[in-house]
């Protein structure tokens, strides 16, 4: 069954999500990846205010391709999340409710998800043209000089993803491969 979630995501909605659930997100999400995270983290380390309010938000780890004329956005699939593991716990402790990316997270990130009653969604890596169909609008928020890595606000409708780590810390990347792992592996 697919769950429809309207953003901003509520604590009740997060409580209801279980690892492995298929979800369609509607509302707005932030974007950011390596370079933007590095800058945000450095500001935090210096005790400075961030140029974007993360409270209650979801951040999508994405660096889109340019949009062709007539398109709201270019192809925009998820990038590997582990590269943001260094930064994610601090951002969650500031109020970020969740992340959308792909691939496994560190234990420190999973702990931060549980501690902050958050969620980590997985989108399908390499399905960029398909995913872009659910992104209706983009707005530049900061770090324009980073090009594809700038922080933007996306307006999404029925953005498809899967609950990869739920608020209880259940992790599909741990549990699901085990179900299909066969004996005799050298």
């Amino acid at each position: 069954m697919t769950k429809k979630i309207t953003l901003p995501i509520t604590d009740e909605a997060i409580q209801d999500l279980k690892a492995g659930d298929s979800v369609l997100l509607t509302g707005t999400i932030l974007t950011g990846r390596d370079a933007a995270h590095k800058r945000l983290y450095e500001l935090l380390e210096q005790g400075k205010e961030l140029p974007v309010d993360l409270k209650g938000e979801l951040i999508y780890y994405v660096g889109p391709a340019p949009a062709k004329p007539g398109y709201a956005v270019g192809p925009a699939g998820p990038t590997s999340s582990y590269r943001m593991d260094k930064y994610a716990p601090a951002l969650m402790d500031l109020g970020l409710k969740g992340m959308i990316g792909k691939g496994a997270r560190s234990q420190a990130v999973i702990d931060a998800i549980v501690r902050n009653h958050g969620v980590y969604f997985a989108a399908i890596g390499g399905a960029a043209a398909l995913i872009a169909k659910s992104i209706k609008k983009e707005e530049l928020l900061c770090y324009e000089d980073l090009g594809t890595e700038a922080v933007r606000r996306y307006t999404v409708e029925d953005f498809p993803c899967i609950v990869a780590v739920d608020a209880q810390g259940n992790n599909v990347y741990e549990t699901e491969p085990l179900k299909y792992r066969k004996k005799g592996l050298i």
């Binding site: 792909k102 496994a104 997985a122 399908i124 599909v172 491969p177 085990l178 792992r181």
Partner: peptide, 12 residues
């Protein structure tokens, strides 16, 4: 046989 599957979400 590793079980990671498509998108790493489990499978053959």
């Amino acid at each position: 046989m590793m079980g990671f599957g498509p998108a790493g979400l489990g499978g053959s």
